[in-house]
Amino acid sequence: MPIISSPHQFNVEDLYLDLRGVHGTPLFLKCEGFNFAGSIKLKAATEMVDAAEREGLIGPDSVLVESSSGNLGVALAIISADRGYRFICVTDPRCNVTTQRLMRSLGAEVQVISTQDSNLGYLHSRIQYVRDLCASNDRYVWLNQYTNPNNWRAHYEHTAPTIARTFPDLDILFVGAGTTGTLMGCARYFKEHRLPVTVVAVDAVGSVTFGGLPERRVVPGLGTSTRPQLLDEAWIDDVVHVSEPETIRACHAMAARGFVLGGSTGTVVSGAARWLGEKYPGEEPVAVAISPDLGERYLTSVYDEGWLHEHFGPSVLSTDSLWSPHP
């Protein structure tokens, strides 16, 4: 039984869900939400703060500030509470109310930016707010998950090696694309170690990350309205885009079998299932997808009937042969 003194010291690394038992897809889902931050972002947050401390960028009067749609904000709020730092999370209206309350309960200040940018998102506006804040006082320290190499390095050093050890015959890895820290860290690891793994990025329809046209998006998590600076497509083998109704149906299909997982997970699983059905029909390659978070923070959005009807209409959960909850 582990005994810890700081919240970042606990993280379940070896839990995989066999999705063949959920909807028949030959896919193992690496569940990353079992830690005190509730998401994979705890790894990146820890790596970025540790590096900033080593480099002397954080002092006794420093105030950490970061733009986040939710999960990284929670992770940084936890680390800041543990280490005695002030923290400001700059987010937008798509951030779940539960997530905002959680960050505030940890002592963080939450600033919600409601000005949309030209790509129908909020990321540019959030980043500009952070830049203005940092320019106003040198006490503010922006870790900048969008350019910080320690974001992807956390997954190069921890996430990818763990997957490689568990699945030495891995054929395909599916990774959701947000800041692309997880994606780039895993892709770099498998390519640099010359392992024959096809790395497939999963993005949301309406995201501009891979050059797509901007569209309205309401599910927090994957996708961006500004291309991430960490992204280098040379490391990636393929990209699949998933619409938000597909994301929602995937989430509800898994919940119908007892697995309540986050919106980002629904996107990744939906994209992986479609890609495998097209590329490997009737076959069973060794495939892994990364589940970034659990579903409790989505109870007022993805899993709320009123929210679904408001944003997608009453037919969003209509029967889909791919997502029949009982294969």
Rank of each mutant, 00 (worst) to 15 (best):
Ile58Arg: 15
Gly59Thr: 07
Gly59Cys: 05
Pro60Ser: 10
Pro60Leu: 13
Ser62His: 05
Ser62Pro: 01
Ser62Asn: 02
Val63His: 04
Leu64Ile: 08
Val65His: 05
Val65Ser: 06
Val65Phe: 06
Ser67Asp: 01
Ser67His: 01
Ser67Val: 03
Ser67Asn: 08
Ser68Phe: 02
Ser68Trp: 00
Ser68Glu: 00
Ser68Asp: 03
Ser69Met: 15
Ser69Lys: 14
Gly70Ala: 08
Gly70Lys: 12
Gly70Phe: 05
Asn71Thr: 12
Asn71Ser: 13
Asn71Gly: 04
Gly73Phe: 02
Gly73Gln: 14
Gly73Thr: 04
Gly73Leu: 05
Val74Tyr: 07
Ala75Glu: 02
Ala75Met: 01
Leu76Thr: 04
Leu76Pro: 07
Ala77Leu: 04
Ala77His: 11
Ile78Ser: 14
Ile78Thr: 13
Ile79His: 06
Ile79Asp: 12
Ile79Arg: 08
Ile79Ala: 09
Ser80Trp: 00
Ala81Tyr: 01
Arg83Ser: 05
Gly84Trp: 02
Gly84Asp: 01
Tyr85Ser: 14
Tyr85Asn: 09
Tyr85Phe: 15
Arg86Met: 01
Arg86Lys: 10
Ile88Arg: 02
Cys89Tyr: 02
Cys89Arg: 06
Val90Asp: 08
Val90Met: 12
Val90Thr: 07
Val90Gly: 06
Val90Cys: 06
Thr91Gly: 05
Asp92Tyr: 00
Asp92Lys: 06
Asp92Ile: 00
Arg94Ala: 10
Arg94Lys: 15
Arg94Cys: 02
Cys95Ile: 07
Cys95Asn: 10
Asn96Asp: 14
Asn96Arg: 14
Val97Ala: 15
Val97Tyr: 13
Val97Gln: 15
Thr98Ile: 14
Thr98Leu: 13
Thr98Ala: 09
Gln100Val: 15
Gln100Cys: 15
Gln100Asp: 14
Arg101Asn: 15
Leu102Cys: 11
Leu102Gln: 09
Met103Lys: 11
Arg104Cys: 07
Arg104Gln: 11
Ser105Lys: 06
Ala108Leu: 03
Glu109Cys: 07
Val110Gly: 04
Gln111Glu: 10
Gln111Asp: 09
Val112Trp: 05
Val112Ala: 06
Ile113Asn: 04
Ser114Pro: 01
Ser114Ile: 02
Thr115Gly: 09
Thr115Tyr: 08
Gln116Val: 13
Ser118Arg: 11
Ser118His: 08
Ser118Cys: 10
Leu120Val: 14
Gly121Pro: 00
Gly121Thr: 00
Gly121Ile: 00
Gly121Tyr: 00
Gly121Phe: 00
Leu123Tyr: 01
His124Met: 14
Ser125Phe: 12
Ser125Thr: 09
Ser125Gly: 11
Ser125Lys: 11
Arg126Gly: 00
Arg126Asp: 00
Tyr129His: 13
Val130Trp: 01
Arg131Met: 09
Arg131Ala: 11
Arg131Lys: 13
Asp132Val: 10
Asp132Gln: 11
Leu133Asn: 07
Leu133Tyr: 05
Ala135Ser: 13
Ala135Tyr: 04
Ser136Lys: 03
Ser136Leu: 00
Ser136Tyr: 08
Asn137Phe: 00
Asp138Pro: 08
Arg139Lys: 02
Arg139Glu: 05
Tyr140Met: 05
Tyr140Pro: 03
Val141His: 13
Val141Leu: 15
Leu143Glu: 09
Leu143Arg: 11
Asn144Ser: 04
Gln145Ala: 06
Gln145Leu: 01
Gln145His: 08
Tyr146Cys: 05
Asn148His: 14
Asn148Gln: 13
Asn150Asp: 15
Trp152Leu: 12
Trp152Asn: 11
Trp152Pro: 15
Arg153Cys: 10
